[in-house]
Write a protein that binds this DNA or RNA. Sequence first.
DNA 1: GAACGCATGTAATCAGTTACATGATTGC
DNA 2: GCAATCATGTAACTGATTACATGCGTTC
Lengths: 203, 203
Amino acid sequence: MREQLETLTEGNETSESSSRNTLRYIMLGLLWARPMSGYDIKQTFERAIASYWNAGNSQIYTTLKNLHKAGLIDAEIIVQTSRPNRKVYRLTRAGEEELSHWLQEDVPERFTKDEFLAKLFFCGAASDDVALAHLQSHRESLLKQLAHMEWARREYGSRPVRRPHLLEYQLLVREYKEAILKAGLEVTEKAIARLEQRLNPQS
Amino acid sequence: MREQLETLTEGNETSESSSRNTLRYIMLGLLWARPMSGYDIKQTFERAIASYWNAGNSQIYTTLKNLHKAGLIDAEIIVQTSRPNRKVYRLTRAGEEELSHWLQEDVPERFTKDEFLAKLFFCGAASDDVALAHLQSHRESLLKQLAHMEWARREYGSRPVRRPHLLEYQLLVREYKEAILKAGLEVTEKAIARLEQRLNPQS
DNA sequence: GAACGCATGTAATCAGTTACATGATTGC
DNA sequence: GCAATCATGTAACTGATTACATGCGTTC
């Protein structure tokens, strides 16, 4: 599909990584913003990132171990008495470079999975009731996501942060995500109205 | 996170599958619409589904083999002279039931990855030029996707099909996808304008 | 004679999910 | 006494990508 010129087979030692592995870079980015433990990272995902990326604890902790082994982050154990100890990680110089390299790289054009649309596409093979139920629960899901963004905006939107310049792009991302959620909601609600009309044409 | 009651450990022979493995079901759905070869399936992905799901040839062919082994599809070899032979698959009764079962199941709430937003989120750690470049190439990508949908509408939108009832939901999916692409485009263009203004404030 | 369309696959690897495992403290 | 929050991980598995492998016919 895309031709790959292999005329220059040598000379690829520059950086030993070329995109993908997005999670690694997201985590580097988070640790650039401030030093954090695996637990903190998980929290940040849930609070601020979950609508376009997420990871389970298992993946987070193994990735932290990898990043540490690769020398991109340093670890420090914070001893606590009435709570389990924390391992707090912070970016090294090499980690900063890796992050900056990723930021400058083009975003690879990979398709975005959407299981809802995939199922809806085939709803003609089921009944309209089934389609309606999916649309309704999708609407609930969208409303929940929008409510969560609203909550996050209040809770974390206007607090002093260590990296103020990050805030601007975080707002942009939120604006983007909110816009597409709302656009999806509109189409969903119109479709629900149409179907309800058809299935239940009283009044 | 979600508790799983294991009080009823027995009794799970009903259907040996419970969601996930979306690709399998998409392929069953496509074969329900009409019998197809792996090659046809790949084409259909590219033409009609690629914006919210896709798969490489390797995955398509191995999945076809699995579905066949599971008795959900039948295979027939179509001998051709001036072209490689084709293996055309069609749904069995068991396959239809599996599909219908999936269609009635709730869509599991899994987050949707978006590498563009993930990178944009951290663009405060780079320069505005970098962010601008990403936004511009994202705009191109959105325009390309919209153009492709336009093309698909003309090419495949108004032709007789074996399963006319499918068409309605396919149109809805297209409408949905188009709406969110346009919403994203709008935000992207506004952000580009803002950045260009800032980086290059002549006139 | 190069590139493209047709047509099918295998092997190795990587990313991501699920299940499992532990344990103290705080609030209801 | 029960659930939630804090806190860190390992092992097994499944889903998805990348690289590799083949080969004929048609069009430029």
